[in-house]
């Protein structure tokens, strides 16, 4: 078991002939993901890493029965690509691009909600389920192992750091989910925690948060009923207010989104909040015994 992405999910890649799309299609195929097609208008008939290219999502879905799509198109075209996927039956949509206008992201997640589809991202590294050898995204293949720890993160490299330290400590992962670093994203901690709650394989959850917004505070209320131990690391203690720390969403605005407020909320509901990334794996080890 795992969450969101399973081995049987058939995946298409929108923007497969671009540099990123091409490279990561190869990586996904190498990992074992069922990548059944790619989209690049005007390039139907080509192959990328052995994967057939189609002009439209409609064609690709008709030919392959795909239900999941990972999007690599430039940000300005991302809304178009997302709607094309959603309107053609894609129900798991991973949006990799950074710098998608917030109004476009609002539209994408609103439409997805209406259709009952799941959006991961934008500005995400994606989702990976090591136990089923499948992934949608740009994370490195070699740092994960199957195991009992669910990981949900806002940030890519920081989650790699933490996932790798879990792996090195002998703690594998059930599924690792990147929510994305933008202000408006498809998943929040609560939706991912709910999924981990349902998953018998997941015995503990690691939250990797950061300054900005109040997703961590909102999640705290839910953690009370999660029934599984949670370890959290939050980045941005040293960040000054009013400055965007790389991610569009990582900003303390008008006194909101501070690390203190998040830590207090999570600590109050029994989350083990550690102050440095390297303290995560030992804390999980201690809890799981």
């Amino acid at each position: 078991m795992a969450i969101l992405l399973r081995s049987e999910d058939k995946i298409i890649v929108q923007g497969i002939t671009g540099n990123q799309g091409r490279f990561h299609t190869g990586q996904m195929v190498a990992y074992g993901a069922k990548v059944v097609g790619g989209i690049s208008p005007g390039k139907a008939g080509q192959q990328v890493e052995g994967v057939p290219v189609f002009d439209t999502v409609r064609q690709a879905v008709a030919a392959t029965g795909a239900t999941a799509s990972v999007v690599f198109v430039p940000a300005a075209f991302a809304k178009d690509a997302a709607y094309e996927a959603l309107e053609n039956g894609i129900r798991l949509l991973v949006m990799i691009p950074e710098h998608i206008p917030v109004q476009d992201s609002i539209d994408i997640v609103t439409r997805a909600q209406a259709l009952g589809a799941v959006v991961i991202g934008p500005n995400t590294f994606g989702v990976i389920t090591p136990g089923e050898k499948t992934k949608m995204g740009i994370m490195p293949n070699h740092i994960y192992r199957p195991g009992p720890v669910g990981v949900v993160a806002r940030s890519g490299t920081l989650s790699y750091e933490i996932a790798f330290s879990l792996t090195n400590a002998g703690l594998g992962q059930s599924t690792v989910v990147g929510m994305g670093g933008d202000p408006v994203v498809g998943q929040n901690f609560i939706s991912v925690l709910e999924a981990f709650h349902q998953d018998p394989e997941t015995k503990a959850v690691v939250m990797v948060g950061e300054i900005g917004g109040s997703a961590e505070e909102e999640a705290a209320e839910y953690v009370k009923t999660l029934g599984k131990p949670v370890v959290a690391y939050l980045a941005g203690r040293a960040a000054p207010p009013g400055k965007r720390m790389g991610h569009a969403g990582a900003i303390i605005e008008r006194g909101r989104g501070t690390l203190d407020s998040k830590e207090r909320a999570l600590t109050a509901v029994g989350v083990r909040v550690v102050t440095m990334p390297w303290e995560v794996a030992p804390a999980v080890r201690e809890i799981l015994g």
């Binding site: 920081l158 040293a238 960040a239």
Partner: peptide, 15 residues
């Protein structure tokens, strides 16, 4: 490399 890593790095220095 990466926004989250960069933030964590500042935190570590401050730590």
């Amino acid at each position: 490399n990466g926004a989250g890593m960069a933030m964590a790095t500042l935190d570590a220095i401050q730590h």
